[in-house]
Design a protein around this nucleic acid. Structure first.
Lengths: 166, 166
DNA sequence: TCTAATTCGTTTCACTTGCAACGAATACCA
DNA sequence: TGGTATTCGTTGCAAGTGAAACGAATTAGA
């Protein structure tokens, strides 16, 4: 195997990285529109919407963000009036994060746009291909799980237990 | 559409972002191993291997890196003795970048590891599924191309013309 | 030929990020 | 109960990134 034969463009991790960058770059335009939200802030906002009294740790556990990133995003969002932060009564280490009405408004405005963006993307696929693509991504995740050095996958945040506060 | 119905985990851009992050995070371990190369530096190194007398602009045009990122990566690689930089005779603005023997050695060591990593990932797929996955990614790229705000896709760097210095 | 526009690579700046360390609060356990 | 460990959120720090600006070199056009 000589070095010359290696072609970055066909290299799977690079391809996915490129696709991700393009896609998320374009998506940013959606939620930056008017509100100037960063990617991290949007993720936090979306996740906090799931439930009242979310803690920084809850968010960190579910969304793919480091603890400091969550902390800072929350601070910025609070400064912009989109959420409020109160120290928990039961455990003074914990912070209870909650959307404000303004935060809810913003989210209600942005969410449909984000979904429309996704929908437009998915027009590239037939219904079966769309499902297949998700399946294939899932297989790659499973393959990554086999490597102990891989970043562990974040649990799902939806209805099923895995991620809601214990 | 209420905000609560939105599930980040099923959101295509987020999913791809997660997959990319996990995959590239794990890959980094490969080329950091012993050489302490950053992602940018590895991309530059790989690309420079394609041809002698590569310029910063050539790299920027092909690899998905901003010009300043390329410039700095090249500087670091030069300081580490993996490539040399000479101003072009014909055009004094241009820089001619070229791997050193040390650079070639490093690349010859890392490349097979990177390919092995990719191969292991692809074990998640049957041969047909692998090809299909690439096809589906291609369709997503095409869909992104339709949006004028999307970052234009970098041309391929392989034998076929698109990317080699004009 | 002489000036203006363009190109190339670098630098600067503001911003984000990941990692480690820290103080405060709580849990654990002899 | 008292002392150690652990957990939580924040902060500092070093490094990386994107956008704009800049100087040097070249090209284009009057």
């Amino acid at each position: 195997m000589t070095t010359d034969d290696f072609n970055l463009d066909d290299f799977l991790p690079y391809q996915i990285s490129m696709l991700s960058a393009r896609m998320n770059g374009l998506l940013s335009a959606t939620y930056v529109e008017g509100y100037n939200l960063s990617n991290s802030e949007w993720r936090v906002l979306v996740h906090v919407a799931r439930r009242e009294k979310m803690s920084v740790r809850d968010i960190h556990k579910c969304v793919n963000l480091e603890k400091p990133a969550v902390s800072r995003a929350v601070t910025r969002l609070e400064n912009n009036g989109l959420l409020v932060k109160m120290t928990s009564e039961q455990d003074h280490r914990l912070v209870e994060i909650q959307l404000t009405d303004a935060g809810i408004d913003v989210l209600n405005d942005i969410t449909p746009k984000a979904l429309a963006f996704e929908k437009k993307l998915l027009q590239a696929f037939s219904a079966e291909d769309g499902a297949l693509f998700y399946t294939l991504m899932e297989r790659l995740h499973n393959q990554l799980d086999k490597d102990p050095n891989a970043t562990p996958r974040k649990p799902r945040a939806d209805g099923r237990p895995r991620c809601l506060p214990d």
